[in-house]
Measured scan of single mutants.
Amino acid sequence: SSQSQGISSSSTSTMPNSSQSSHSSSGTLSSLETVSTQELYSIPEDQEPEDQEPEEPTPAPWARLWALQDGFANLECVNDNYWFGRDKSCEYCFDEPLLKRTDKYRTYSKKHFRIFREVGPKNSYIAYIEDHSGNGTFVNTELVGKGKRRPLNNNSEIALSLSRNKVFVFFDLTVDDQSVYPKALRDEYIMSKTLGSGACGEVKLAFERKTCKKVAIKIISKRKFAIGSAREADPALNVETEIEILKKLNHPCIIKIKNFFDAEDYYIVLELMEGGELFDKVVGNKRLKEATCKLYFYQMLLAVQYLHENGIIHRDLKPENVLLSSQEEDCLIKITDFGHSKILGETSLMRTLCGTPTYLAPEVLVSVGTAGYNRAVDCWSLGVILFICLSGYPPFSEHRTQVSLKDQITSGKYNFIPEVWAEVSEKALDLVKKLLVVDPKARFTTEEALRHPWLQDEDMKRKFQDLLSEENESTALPQVLAQPSTSRKRPREGEAEGAETTKRPAVCAAVL
């Protein structure tokens, strides 16, 4: 046999249950609850290399294929790409003598399909299967379609040439079993990697079954959420508030809700932002270029202005709740996480202390139980975000031990490091100062900020419009641009040419 590394010779191994799959997660993409704000000051410096380099560890398999027929071997997927077919160049070659004697062998292509993985959001991997055969590759009886790919989820059954000719079961060793999710959700989405997690739940990458488009699904544990919100009269209202707010909003710089499922837990389906959180971008770069800050901040102002015009105060604006559309420097941003939002009543007064301390406005800290506050709290938070983006460190921090965090904020005395700000323009610093004003009545509004000289930049605004146009074009394009080929190089076993392929839609398939 010419099988590559990772293939075992026996096809009769006992199949494990899916609970053996491991679970991976990374930083929070968007969480309903406010958790302790991640610290920006503690960015690790590059460490000196050791005298002796450690040995390379043996790579762990990321997936496993269990053979369902004699003549096929099990495969431990270690590499990122595997070709399957009769050709000797394939990493998994159909060359077992037992297999060659079967009637089905002649229906398999020289290069029938490939399984591979690509880097997705949060640097996690996504597994795909890609059909290159004349007679078809099927996943859970659905045709992939020649020249098309679809994501592979845990426990997928792979069939060759005929939908009933099941050859492998695919085990993704990095994700959960699909069966743990409600059927209504599974009918519409293929669940994938964990993108982030918080005290009350997690955010998962998923794929729409009909279109193969990526989405983010925010899962909120009702049990954990009820415990964490025990002081509230009705904890469920917080989730329902977020859903109702998101459904009503329609702005290019605000995250869109696509679906909602109320089962044992809450499942909020949101558009996916491939670039992750602004927080991670700031930490990764230490600070952002001023031109990049301007492009992002302009969009934040437009989003918050839209919220305020619609009578909504976000109340928890922070870099973790600003998501980026891509890994590119120039990209769209979207505001997310409306769990603490407040729809303005007639009095415009709110007395609930919520939000993240580092970003809270002075009037929030001094008015607990005594007075109210209004939309100006969001403008203060925007000032803190702009400060961080321009400088790479927070204006107020618990680690300045000589003054408490509350006193720093209520006095408006931010930590100004001259040598850092020497590289920032006077106009940018002036806008920061106009937003970090203790008196909410004297603080800049979103309208005033948008009129500030720093943002009178036609090149930046043109760039934003171009990015918007690109997004609109990409969302308007159909996901499947061509029909699967019906040509046949070899006959199917026991049926006429093209008899099955043309009847089945290529579900969740995307043209390369």
Rank of each mutant, 00 (worst) to 15 (best):
I243K: 09
L246R: 03
L246K: 00
K248R: 13
H251G: 03
H251I: 01
I254T: 05
I254A: 06
I255Y: 10
K256T: 07
K256S: 04
I257S: 04
K258R: 05
F260H: 13
D262G: 09
Y266C: 14
V269R: 01
V269H: 15
L270A: 08
E274T: 09
E274P: 10
G275D: 03
G276W: 02
G276I: 04
V282A: 08
V282L: 12
V283Y: 03
G284H: 09
K286R: 07
R287M: 10
R287C: 14
R287W: 15
L288P: 07
A291C: 15
A291K: 07
C293N: 03
C293I: 12
K294S: 14
F297V: 10
Y298R: 10
Y298E: 06
Q299H: 05
L301P: 00
Y306H: 06
Y306F: 10
E309N: 04
G311H: 07
G311S: 03
H314F: 01
D316Q: 03
L317T: 00
K318D: 03
P319I: 01
P319A: 13
N321H: 04
L324S: 08
L324Q: 05
L324Y: 00
L324T: 07
S325P: 11
S326W: 01
Q327H: 11
E328F: 09
E328K: 05
D330R: 12
D330Y: 09
C331T: 03
C331W: 07
L332M: 00
I333D: 01
I333W: 01
K334I: 12
K334V: 05
I335G: 01
T336S: 07
S341V: 01
S341A: 15
I343L: 09
G345I: 11
T347A: 10
L349G: 13
L349E: 06
L349H: 13
T352Y: 01
L353Y: 10
C354T: 00
T356G: 01
T358I: 09
Y359H: 02
L360C: 09
A361S: 10
P362Y: 00
V366D: 04
S367Y: 14
G369L: 15
T370V: 10
T370A: 11
A371C: 08
A371W: 04
Y373N: 02
R375F: 11
A376N: 15
C379H: 12
S381D: 04
F387S: 02
G392C: 15
Y393W: 05
P394Q: 09
P395T: 03
E398A: 02
E398K: 10
H399Q: 11
V403G: 07
S404L: 01
Q408G: 11
Q408I: 08
S411N: 09
N415C: 08
N415S: 05
P418I: 13
V420C: 01
E423W: 15
E423A: 11
E426L: 10
K427T: 08
K433G: 11
K434V: 03
D439R: 11
P440V: 06
L450I: 08
L450M: 02
R451M: 15
R451I: 11
E458I: 12
D459L: 00
R462I: 03
K463L: 08
F464L: 03
Q465H: 15
Q465G: 00
L467A: 01
E470P: 06
E471M: 05
E471P: 05
N472Y: 08
S474M: 14
T475P: 15
A476E: 00
A476P: 15
L477I: 09
L477F: 01
Q483A: 11
P484L: 13
S485T: 11
R488V: 09
K489R: 12
R490Q: 14
G494V: 04
G494R: 12
A496S: 10
E500L: 11
P505F: 15
A506S: 03
A509K: 08
A510Y: 01
A510T: 08
A510H: 04
V511G: 14
L512S: 13
